[in-house]
């Protein structure tokens, strides 16, 4: 693994000419490769730096608390804006999405990897792969035109029978354009991502583990629990992480479905709600200089949140490194 070409430098068995080409070519190639790697770091640093730089004007102009204010009037004088409502809507819709999508996504991956008959499995895998790339704008259009009219009954049922749980209570009697529907659409959107990545991990589980468990008399579910899950846990977390990243930062579908409002409303089946990304897309073209800067500031917060989510997930993965799937 670690025998780099530089170890060949003093190897008498390698003819002089070969050594020369090898060394120069290696140095150039290595330079390109390292450069590409470093480029990733530079980009990430630059994203943070430029967003901080350009969000400073609005943060200085803001006359209220940036984190606790729910209103958004950055171009007024004095500017009044804050991210509280955006943060609330983003977190709630992403939470609904993850609660629905992660178990179902893992279920789909299990079905394709271990339960479905082989010939059908490859076709089903192809379909999930295909749907992972359905653009968010199409999910948004579909959510608005097809799903929302059909979700009315479910939301109403939640209100009628689970209304004693405060979040399902609906005091308006209007069930459209809500965070709940946005969350369901987000769940459907991240579902293919979660299931496709999880399936890739499941397929890498060594067949010795699977067959060993079955040979010892485990039922199929016990095999999944004892052989598949421990091996693929980091991969499953990384799949959930990819899904969460997509749900947190999803712009267009949320912007289309929610009727953007700058309020904190725990009744998730009522119209309203907002998210960082949707707000940026909706306000971008009507924003003045301070407005743009304020939107960049809210984008910076979104960037930092996704950064923290990913770091947390990475930390969990690194704790279980002994199960990492690579050879």
């Amino acid at each position: 693994m670690s025998n780099t070409a530089t170890e060949n430098e003093h190897d008498p068995l390698i003819p002089h000419g070969h050594q020369q080409t090898g060394r120069v070519g290696d140095r150039i190639f290595r330079g390109f490769a390292s450069g590409a790697g470093i480029f990733v770091l530079v980009i990430m640093g630059a994203i943070g730096a430029f967003l901080i730089w350009k969000s400073i004007p609005s943060l200085q102009a803001d006359s209220t608390n940036f984190f606790t204010t729910t209103e958004w009037f950055p171009d007024d004088n004095p500017a009044v804006f804050g991210i509280a409502a955006l943060l609330f809507g983003t977190v709630i819709s992403a939470t609904i999405a993850m609660v629905l999508a992660v178990p179902v996504g893992i279920g789909i991956a299990l079905f394709i990897a271990f339960y479905a008959p082989r010939p059908v499995a490859s076709t089903l895998a192809f379909i999930t792969d295909l749907l992972a790339a359905v653009p968010s704008i199409i999910f948004g259009l579909w959510g608005l035109a097809v799903l929302m009219p059909n979700m009315q009954g479910t939301a109403q049922w939640l209100n009628d029978y689970l209304g004693w749980i405060p979040i399902f209570d609906n005091t308006l009697g209007i069930y459209s354009k809500s965070l709940f529907i946005a969350g369901v659409v987000l769940a459907i959107m991240v579902l293919p991502t979660v299931s496709a990545v999880t399936r890739e991990v499941f397929i890498q589980v060594p067949s010795e583990h699977v067959e060993g468990a079955l040979a010892l008399g485990a039922t199929r579910w016990e095999m999944v629990r004892m052989a598949v899950f421990p091996f693929s846990l980091p991969g499953m977390i990384s799949a959930a992480m990819l899904g969460l990243g997509r749900a947190l930062g999803e712009t267009i579908a949320v912007a289309l479905i929610l009727s953007a409002a700058f309020t904190i409303n725990w009744h998730i089946t009522e119209p309203g709600g907002n998210s960082f990304a949707a707000n940026i897309a909706l306000k971008w073209n009507e924003a003045g200089p301070i407005g743009l800067s304020a939107l960049i500031a809210s984008g910076l917060v979104l960037f930092l949140i996704t950064l923290v989510v990913n770091m947390l997930a990475r930390w969990i993965v690194s704790r279980r490194k002994d199960f990492s799937g690579a050879n």
Binding site: M44, L51, W53, I296, L302, N310, R314
Partner: peptide, 25 residues
Amino acid sequence: KWVSFFVDVMTGVPSIVAGLFIYTF
């Protein structure tokens, strides 16, 4: 390790943030 870590983090960069960054830069 840093590169690998930040590739993972970059996977989670929301598309709108990528747009914001290019707009500012």
